[in-house]
Design a protein around this nucleic acid. Structure first.
Length: 404
RNA sequence: GGGAGGAUUCCCGAGUGGCUAAAGGGGGCAGACUGUAAAUCUGUUGUCGGACGACUACGGUGGUUCGAAUCCACCUCCUCCCA
């Protein structure tokens, strides 16, 4: 195991807040002393089976901690999912059925191990202990906090103030999540800053059960590719960890420059010192594009491996930086779209190639100077073409035509 | 239990009998600019057709009317107020 101070440096990289750093240090010292790994808890709500880089922020952090020799316990909140975490939501969420929950959980697991080390990860369902809790134990648990305390939570508070519905059962959510920490004897609970209330509740409740309190490790909420909103699939600004290498690379390249370092910190496993080197290069006035390319390469490498990262970078440089044709592009037989006079219907070609979803859109694209034939703007819908000609739609779609 | 209001195109939201494929904003796409990107500016944003045009569309079903997103009836869902 690395020296404690160094471990702390790695754990703290990119973290929004650690409560309490001294306690963390103490736990690490004991752990190193006794050779006993710490247990890092992450609670996941099994509703979102497509992980993106935003979710990956906490997962990567866990991975880094695993590399230090510690263990992770992932709690799939199959039981709590019946309530639906009210965090950050302004509405009561529809409860999931048990079947849906299990189905989601299976998908989730596959994706988790793209990031975590399986041999140092344990996945547990909180129904294991929560479903067995009898009324007496529930009352005991509930007695360890107060209504006022629960209602302090921002989202409950604002919902209450604006007369929105709050189900009584929802008030139990933080308690149940806290109880998970008791059940698994968590040393550290990690989560986004939006989990602040729930995780701190865990510290409290553990103490009431006579356990040492967990350390709360909060990670920032990652901004999406638009640089403003938090990353989320429904906002369309997310980068999924399953995305194709080229797409992933391109998407990383579209983040605003001022987010480069933040992404290095939150989306890669680079050592803090390496991140600092990139920061210095930026400060020295090096072209942010090139630093961003390093970032994109690193991120693609994490999810697809070095070779894929190299070729994604190569593709990006060719197409976007050098404005040349990509090395490999799809090809399309023009015969079905060519009339007797030898004119090819580009509208249909664009639709067929999947570049536009309707022919109206294809016409629009042509009329707006968005289509090129061998680098020349096209201003007609029907045009003669030769074997091997290249049609380009917008900046990134290419197809080579062949006349079979 | 009683009362009031709402459901519009990808999203928010205007429209209250023909001039409405439907204002405005967001988002998307394209073009210009640029050291990638962001920002900015311009255009565009239902489908089919190279234009004129046709078709489909304003929660659901039926109706009134020459004509309905707009009026009426019933239904579904949502919200608010009083108790």
């Amino acid at each position: 195991m690395l020296p404690v101070d160094e471990q702390i440096q790695i754990i703290a990289k990119g973290a929004a807040e650690i409560i309490d750093p001294e306690e963390l240090k103490k736990k690490l010292l004991v752990s190193k002393d006794k050779g006993k790994p710490l247990i890092v808890k992450l609670g996941l709500d099994p509703t979102a089976p497509d992980l993106h880089l935003g979710h990956a922020v906490v997962l990567r952090k866990i991975r880094q901690i695993q590399e230090l020799g510690h263990r992770a316990v992932i709690i799939l909140g199959d039981f709590t999912a019946m309530i639906g975490d009210p965090s950050g939501r302004s509405k009561t969420r529809k409860p999931l059925t048990h079947g849906e929950t299990l189905e989601n959980a299976a998908t989730y697991k596959d994706q988790l191990f793209r990031i975590l080390m399986p041999e140092r990860t344990e996945i547990r369902f909180n129904s294991q202990w929560l479903s067995k809790m009898d009324l007496a134990s529930l009352l005991e648990l509930a007695g360890k906090t107060t209504v006022a305390r629960i209602l302090e939570r921002d989202d409950f508070k604002s919902r209450l103030d604006s007369n929105l519905t709050i189900g009584l059962h929802e008030l139990f959510y933080p308690l149940m999540q806290a109880y998970d920490s008791v059940a698994i004897r968590a040393d550290i609970e990690i989560g986004g800053t939006d989990q602040r209330f729930n995780i701190l509740m865990g510290r409290d409740i553990q103490k009431h059960y006579g356990l040492e309190s967990q350390v709360a490790l909060f990670m920032p909420i990652l901004e999406g590719t638009d640089g403003v909103e938090k990353m989320s699939k429904s906002l369309g600004n997310s980068i999924g960890i399953d995305e194709e290498p080229n797409t992933m690379f391109e998407k990383v390249m579209t983040i605003p420059d001022n987010l480069i370092i933040r992404y290095f910190q939150l989306c890669t496993d680079l050592h803090p010192d390496e991140v600092d080197q990139y920061r210095e290069r930026l400060d020295r006035g090096e072209n942010p594009r090139d630093i961003k390319a390093c970032l994109a390469h690193e991120i693609v490498r994490l999810y697809h491996g070095g070779d894929a990262a190299d070729s994604a970078m190569d593709h990006f440089n060719t197409v976007f930086r050098d404005r040349q044709y990509p090395r490999d592009m799809m090809s399309l037989d023009t015969a079905p779209f060519t009339d007797d006079q030898g004119n090819t219907d580009l509208v249909r070609v664009l639709v067929q190639a999947g570049f536009t979803s309707s022919s109206s859109e294809a016409r629009r694209l042509i009329l707006q100077d968005g289509v090129r034939l061998n680098s020349e703007r096209v201003d007609r819908f029907r045009i003669p073409v030769r074997d091997g000609d290249v049609i380009q739609a917008g900046k990134k779609h290419f197809v080579r035509l062949n006349k079979a």
